[in-house]
Design a protein around this nucleic acid. Sequence first.
RNA 1: GUGGGUGUAGCUCAGUUGGUUAGAGCGCAGGAUUGUGGCUCCUGAGGCCGAGGGUUCGAAUCCCUCUACUCACCCCA
Length: 420
Amino acid sequence: MKKNQIKTVKGFNEILPPESFRWRRVEDQFRNLLEGYGFAELRLALLEPTELFTRSIGGETDIVEKEMYTFLDRSERSLTLRPEGTASVVRAFNQYSLGKISEINKLYYVGPMFRYERPQKGRYRQFYQLGAEVFGEASFYQDAETLVMLAQFFRILEIDGVVLEINSLGCEACRPSFREQLKSFLIEREASLCADCRRRLRENPLRALDCKNPTCREAVVAAPQINESLCADCQEHFSSLCGLLDDVGLDYQINSRLVRGLDYYTRTTFEFLAGELGVQNAVAAGGRYDRLVEELGGKATPAFGFAIGFERLMMLAGDKLPLSSPVIALIPLAEEALRLLFPLYVQLNRQAKVATLGFQHKSLKSQLKKADRDGVGYALIVGPDEMAKGAAICRNMQTKEQTEIGFDSLEEALKKLYHQ
RNA sequence: GUGGGUGUAGCUCAGUUGGUUAGAGCGCAGGAUUGUGGCUCCUGAGGCCGAGGGUUCGAAUCCCUCUACUCACCCCA
């Protein structure tokens, strides 16, 4: 690394070849799967008014308190690089009145998110998420469909060992009373809680439930369980969802401490965990948020969504996926040959028939070597001898078999090779 | 924000108690083969040894500061 070399800013993750090919493959798989389930893509702004996130994610969350890239623009507006996707999708849902265009809206997105955290394994300041949201469907069938779809995605990518944990956080009817119950429980034990939990006790007592601090964990062992104080409707929703997952044979574990770091969730929350990832083990997570659309100024609309961490997903899927190669290498051994092959090269690639052509007049040997490294199926050789004869040599790189092809039928003959 | 570890070639890493011109493997380029890839062999290019300061006749090596990367805490995808 040279002295004055300009580099990326800390934690901004970039994807280079050949990894970028693998990313593209997985992204395509995601799009195909989601579009098969009726989802459509939303391509949204990366920069939003700061208020969008303080109102949706919650002012007492770590994301809003210390992890956002927030700054003033030239007209002194407070803007923030999006730390997650759901808030923006809900903003767009309201802004464009998508709920009036169709009753059910299934939307997905792919793109970078930004959080100012200390980078670590599986955690970056710029990171990619594959996410989706469904608006207008309150049924537990929707929860189940989404979870099944995610499990299917992991199966398509041949990722094993991912565990699904689910929980219910209740709704505006039953959560407040649970909150109070939990709060008074915690206040009795305030002395044994960590500083963060004590600070958040009043605003967001649920967060104490998944605190990693050992003394906090011990203090909350006997804490009231949210799924024991659910109202009848929430209880019904949760048990119906579990029953449905049982019916379709999707394994899951109920984790009553799964409260998530964002405030907008109601009822179902879930995480897909992969032990292989180490400490940052959530590869996908999400849940139901039936109040958020209204809280952000829209018409009351139930919703369910999730996000997958792309980098974490690729750590699990990674190199099982084969790379594509060009099919034909065009090999000229003289200037006239290069001149002859160039139009053919352009013509093939214009039709999405991938071919390579070297412009540098290298030796046959080195051009074949490069073709081999590129993994091409065929090499088309044209040197002075072939120019004299009016026919090129076509070499099968696997069998070493060589045939002659007359110049006047080159394009036609080469196209056939792509279909083998 | 708080700790630990590591910075030497494009990549993965050696480098002796401080001692000439800093090494290997892989990769890259060329050749052995006047026009035929993979295996083998030969040759070559490529380094301010992370940056700055200090100790010393002499520093990749010892000391200090900074910086980057990395793992962990916290939190999350």
